[in-house]
Design a protein around this nucleic acid. Structure first.
Length: 477
DNA sequence: ATGTCC
């Protein structure tokens, strides 16, 4: 990104000056000079376009891990007020609705794990269905799938995939209100009927990780984390169903925008007023997509427990937290000095409530919401905690991952999957992948440095680092 | 991300 187009507010906060006559909300980009410089100019163009959408309130923002996406940048955040003609956009949520990370803590230390690592890797690879179009053991009738879309992780626990305690540590207690299965197309449901409890492909993964470093002892204690401990991170979303909802509603919202003569700065920003029929339908379908993803990660949690207990009997595997990073949620915030309900698009961005928020599980409430930043394969991941300053700065939002630095195509040109797996093995990381090409696309160096993203997230006042996780086993689609 | 072009 060309930094000369930006105005520096402080080392971690940048804005774009308004051109004469230009009408839009303020744009704020969070991140260091180095991170911003490595971003595509498209990120700036896209977030400036978002700032022009009807009914936007507050600022259009990008997180330190932002990169070029469909319509909205990934790492883009924007809130809209329905009472001011605010819109909802499928491109502002992302195709993989409610893609997110579930983190599980175990009672194992790295030393406990080491003798079993290869066998556990094989067992996880066998147990966790993954890959493009890959189906699992669970086949659902249309009726049963509707129950998934209404019930989310609650449905999964009811069916025996996990324990009620898991639900307490999932956003929305595992079930998103306002899901309307009737607004999800037959096609979307057809694609999902065999895909519940599957990991998918692309940047999705299941990693067994060790807590390498604790930054904040008090928060780590509250989260049940200690140095040397084994944890598991599951990164996946709403699979074929979410993707199909995105495809369906992109068209429907584009038609609505045309009918209502909404002046779109970019065709990819197809949107409709929150209060319009199309907007209303998308919200019902999107919430169903969120429940699909929450149920999916809940089933994968159950499968992970099974694999651990088969190889290392008696292992405790508890849900630390589950965050979504592709959503649009109705939340109460003070904007322009007034409390109001707004619809916040967080695309490749994580909700990050500071201490005391009632939606944080009791156990963590005085500390803040856990924030999970997934790293690229073979590097590291971070657990952070929400802070007070994030509300005013970014409507309680933080980064979600490392963010791509190279496109998939560029990555494929540079590496082969085989060499990446060998390189990681030499560093003690066991990779079990369904696709060698997928591994090349996800090569560690195709991503930004996650350490810099986590550091910038903290210094920008969005969330504080609690623990650094290093991968030991990585299962990929 | 994605039954990576029904």
């Amino acid at each position: 990104m060309d930094l000369s187009k930006l105005e520096k507010i402080d080392e971690y906060t940048w804005t774009v000056p308004l051109k004469p006559g230009e009408k839009r909300a303020p744009v704020v980009l969070y991140g260091t000079k180095e991170l911003l410089r490595s971003m595509d100019d498209k990120v700036l163009e896209q977030i400036t376009n978002v700032a022009k959408l009807p009914g936007i309130v507050g600022k259009a923002m990008t997180m330190p891990d932002a990169h070029w996406g469909y319509g909205f940048p990934i790492g883009g955040v924007a809130a809209f007020d329905p009472e001011e003609g605010g819109i909802i956009s499928a491109g502002g949520v992302g195709f993989d609705i409610s893609c997110g990370i579930r983190c599980l803590r175990t009672d194992l230390s790295l030393r406990d794990l080491e003798p079993y690592a290869e066998r556990l890797a094989d067992e996880l690879y066998k147990t966790i269905p993954a890959g493009v179009g890959e189906e699992g053991e669970i086949k659902l009738s249309p009726k049963e799938l509707d129950r998934v879309l209404e019930g989310g992780a609650e449905w999964a626990v009811r069916e025996g995939y996990g324990v009620p305690e898991d639900l307490e540590y999932i956003e929305e207690h595992g079930r998103m209100e306002g899901a309307v299965p009737e607004f999800v197309s037959k096609e979307a449901k057809k694609r999902q009927k065999g895909e519940m409890g599957t990991l998918g492909s692309g940047n999705h993964y299941l990693e067994v990780q060790v807590v390498e470093k604790v930054y904040d002892q008090k928060a780590a204690e509250a989260f049940g984390l200690w140095e040397g401990q084994i944890v598991v991170s599951i990164h996946c979303g709403s699979r074929g169903l979410g993707h199909q909802i995105g495809t369906d509603y992109l068209l429907s919202l584009a038609k609505a925008a045309q009918r209502l003569k909404i002046d779109l700065p970019d065709r990819e920003l197809a949107c409709a007023p929150i209060t319009s029929p199309e907007g209303h339908e998308y919200i019902g379908a999107m919430n169903a997509g969120i429940n699909c993803a929450l149920a999916n990660r809940q089933i994968l949690t159950h499968l992970t427990r099974q694999a651990f207990r088969k190889i290392i009997p008696g292992t405790k595997v508890e849900t630390l937290y589950d965050v979504s990073h592709n959503t649009c949620k109705r939340e109460k915030h003070v904007i322009d000095g007034r409390e109001r309900f707004v619809y916040i698009h967080r695309k490749g961005a994580t909700r990050a409530y500071g201490p005391g928020h009632p939606d944080i599980p009791q156990r963590y409430r005085n500390i803040g919401q856990p924030v999970l930043i997934g790293g690229s394969m073979g590097t590291g991941s971070y657990i952070l905690v929400g802070v007070d300053t994030s509300e005013q700065r970014a409507l309680s939002t933080a980064s979600h991952g490392a963010g791509r630095a190279l496109s998939r195509r560029q990555a494929l040109k540079q590496w082969s999957g085989k060499e990446i797996i060998q390189q990681l093995a030499a560093r003690g990381i066991i990779v079990r992948a369904h696709s060698s090409r997928g591994v090349a696309e996800e090569a560690p160096d195709a991503y930004k440095n996650v350490d810099l993203v986590a550091e910038a997230t903290e210094y920008a006042g969005l969330a504080n680092r609690v623990a650094l996780l290093r991968p030991k086993i990585c299962v990929k689609g």
